[in-house]
């Protein structure tokens, strides 16, 4: 049994838990405290508001223990807001949150809610069938550096990437019935 935590400070927590529950051999767990971080094998940082989640991570002193574990190899997957938390640079802002991944992201890159959209795309490394991608006030990756591998692009923008134990997506697989991204991550 592998315990996959979902950072449960704010956002689409239950959606990730529900997806993980459908995968055999996975025990999903909400993560809200330092103690919880010690109990998990890997962690998902869900969609939500990155400013809110970032502040709560700082105020409750979770930033450091989380960074430590990820640096030591714990797999992490950030969806949307989670991707912003992991980014080494946030364009137009002078601060980062975890800042662990060599990507430069642009927040709300596609615009406001009226610009939210969904589409289908093939992401070879993840699934043989096209996956439904849902973008909600989504960010994109403007640039990748170092050994970051680009997993998917949409209309010339990078929307999914991996760097070793770190996975990020601009979109929200937790909002679909498709489990391919959750399965892909659970094998990290």
């Amino acid at each position: 049994m592998k315990t996959i935590g979902v950072l449960a400070l704010q956002g689409s927590v239950v959606e990730h838990i529900n997806s993980l529950q459908k995968i055999e051999g996975i025990l999903p767990m909400e993560v809200k405290s330092r103690k919880d971080i010690d109990k998990i094998d890997s962690i998902i940082m869900p969609g939500g508001e990155s400013t809110t989640i970032g502040k709560l991570l700082r105020d409750f002193e979770l930033l450091e223990p989380l960074s430590d574990r990820i640096n030591k190899g714990m797999p992490v997957w950030g969806t949307c807001a989670g991707m912003i938390l992991l980014a080494g640079k946030i364009i137009g802002e002078d601060h980062v949150h975890l800042g662990l991944m060599d990507i430069e992201v642009r927040r709300n890159a596609y615009g406001g809610q009226l610009d939210s959209f969904s589409c289908h795309a093939c992401i070879d490394k993840v699934s043989k069938a096209p996956v439904n991608l849902i973008f909600i006030r989504a960010p994109w990756i403007e640039r990748v550096n170092g050994n970051v591998e680009v997993l998917a692009e949409y209309e010339g923008k990078i929307i999914a990437a991996r760097q070793g134990n770190m996975l990020v997506t601009s979109f929200h697989p937790e909002l679909t019935e498709d489990l391919s991204f959750h399965k892909y991550f659970s094998e990290f």
């Binding site: 449960a8 400070l9 704010q10 956002g11 689409s12 927590v13 239950v14 959606e15 969609g47 939500g48 508001e49 809110t52 949307c80 807001a81 809610q113 939210s116 959209f117 969904s118 849902i134 909600i136 006030r137 929200h172 909002l175």
Partner: peptide, 18 residues
């Protein structure tokens, strides 16, 4: 509709928040 789903989805992102 797709739009209704996307609009519901934004509310999902606000969950647990103020």
């Amino acid at each position: 509709s797709d739009r209704f789903e996307l609009n519901k989805n934004l509310a999902q992102m606000l969950k647990g928040g103020v």
